[in-house]
């Protein structure tokens, strides 16, 4: 009887968790469709040229994607900094203050197309055939679905270095021989541009395909590496490389939608930190800058001490 009761309770909890995941997944899918809704671009291999491109979307969404209706804030920032006209972008920094102040890294959890792709990759089950020898099986099982890469504590600082070097310093200082600036993050790293812009355009446009060379190969390799890693490790790009995540993480203490803990309700069971795939420890307030507001900790909390809504009680001491 007791076993039956436990089984039923577990099933209800799993169902609640699945529903939460589905809701977030739907929001991510809808926002992806909304920000990449220019279907004619995919049909004609042309990008959208309307006035909406003066506006930025909150997530990493390449403006050279055939479906993109608005601009990417990181791409826009680089294009302004590498021009000789502006050395400081009021528009983009203002945009970061507004979006970061309201949503913080909830943008990563709900509104970033590349974050959604990584979420989908992580949901791919890893199947190990029965014929695999035990020694290899053991190794494969150890690889199976982990939260972080080895060296996580150091690697999370890499995104701040990428923000400072590839998004700000290099575009401002290093020019081509003709005096034109280069968006270095887009050129060398951005997997979102490769996935949503580069690959579709190269497939649709013969002239672009003919010019795809070493840089394209490098970016496709990096994209393949990141997506394959995403099957085993949760959101490696967001955790270690994304400059936009680095910007929004600065708002973790003040943003309207942020992790809030009511310490009077907390029973210190540690379920929240075990559940969190981003490595946040809500109970002790550690790594809060990594929180993407996915809500997994909130669902796992038996006393409902965690909330993300603006009116939630926040008694973090830090």
């Amino acid at each position: 009887m007791q076993e039956k009761k436990e089984f039923r309770e577990k099933n209800i909890k799993n169902k609640e968790k699945r529903t939460g995941l589905r809701l977030r997944g739907w929001i991510q899918a809808l926002f992806f469709a909304f920000s990449n809704g220019y279907l004619a671009g995919y049909l004609n291999a042309k990008i959208y040229r309307g006035q909406l491109k003066q506006i930025c979307v909150p997530g990493l969404n390449c403006y050279s994607c055939p479906g993109a209706l608005a601009s990417c804030p990181i791409g826009a920032l680089q294009s302004l900094l590498d021009s000789k006209k502006f050395h400081f972008s009021c528009y983009i920094f203002g945009f970061f203050l507004v979006v970061g102040g309201i949503l913080g890294r909830a943008v990563c959890g709900f509104l970033c197309p590349f974050g959604w792709i990584q979420d989908l990759c992580y949901r791919i089950p890893i199947w190990i055939p029965k014929r695999v020898p035990d020694t290899l099986r053991w190794k494969l099982e150890r690889m199976n679905k982990r939260k972080h890469l080895p060296g996580h504590k150091v690697l999370i600082w890499l995104k701040y270095v990428i923000l400072a070097v590839f998004v700000i310093l290099l575009p401002m200082t290093v020019m081509t021989e003709f005096g034109a600036g280069v968006p270095w993050f887009c050129k060398l790293i951005c997997p979102s541009g490769t996935l949503f812009g580069g690959i579709p355009l190269v497939l649709l446009d013969e002239a672009l395909a003919a010019n795809a060379g070493g840089y394209f190969l490098w970016k496709v390799t990096l994209l393949a590496l990141l997506l394959s890693t995403s099957v085993f490790v949760y959101r490696p790009f967001c955790k270690y490389l994304c400059p936009l995540g680095a910007v929004y993480s600065g708002f973790y203490k003040i943003s309207l939608f942020r992790l809030k803990l009511d310490e009077s309700l907390c029973i210190h069971c540690g379920k929240c930190s075990k559940t969190c795939l981003m490595g946040v420890d809500p109970e002790h307030g550690k790594n809060r800058q990594e929180c993407i507001a996915c809500g997994d900790c909130q669902k796992s909390c038996p006393t409902k001490a965690i909330s993300f809504w603006p009116k939630g009680k926040d008694t973090f001491s830090s």
Partner: peptide, 13 residues
């Protein structure tokens, strides 16, 4: 800038 294909962004330039 956004109304033209950014060749660097897609890995071609």
């Amino acid at each position: 800038k956004a109304v033209y294909v950014c060749l660097e962004c897609i890995g071609i330039g």
